[in-house]
């Protein structure tokens, strides 16, 4: 598809077209979110609803070789969440399959 006809000319257009859709957000500190996007601004501050957060905690025990650390995954749900933009690594639109 021609980028102009899809309405996507710059990166923020991709986020604008994801409004009211479920998005995937990768954050600093090994955190990931999925939630329905309701607002954003130029700092990539976000407001999401029906959010599930996934935190990956890698425990490097002493004497355990690299690559064999235990990985713990913590999940939780939040109804409505403001996410400060400085922690955002990427926002990915819903898969259209």
């Amino acid at each position: 598809m021609d980028p102009a006809s899809s309405g996507i000319q710059e990166p923020f257009d991709l986020i604008r077209l994801s409004l009211s859709e479920r998005v995937f957000v990768k954050l600093r500190g090994d955190r990931e979110l999925t939630g329905v996007l309701h607002a954003y601004d130029g700092h990539m501050n976000l407001i999401l609803s029906d959010v599930e957060e996934t935190i990956v905690i890698v425990e490097h025990a002493d004497g355990v070789p690299e690559g064999q650390a235990t990985v713990n995954v913590a999940k939780r749900k939040v109804d409505m969440l403001f996410v400060r933009g400085d922690g955002v690594i990427l926002v990915s639109p819903p898969s259209r399959t």
């Binding site: 923020f12 604008r16 409004l19 009211s20 500190g29 601004d41 403001f82 922690g87």
Partner: peptide, 24 residues
């Protein structure tokens, strides 16, 4: 601040989306 959990019942999501589109 990393996150702020908001009271969902006091957030009008339709209004937010319209305002976000207008600002964009």
């Amino acid at each position: 601040v990393r996150y702020v959990q908001l009271p969902a019942e006091h957030v009008d999501t339709q209004l937010l989306e319209d305002a976000t589109r207008r600002e964009a």
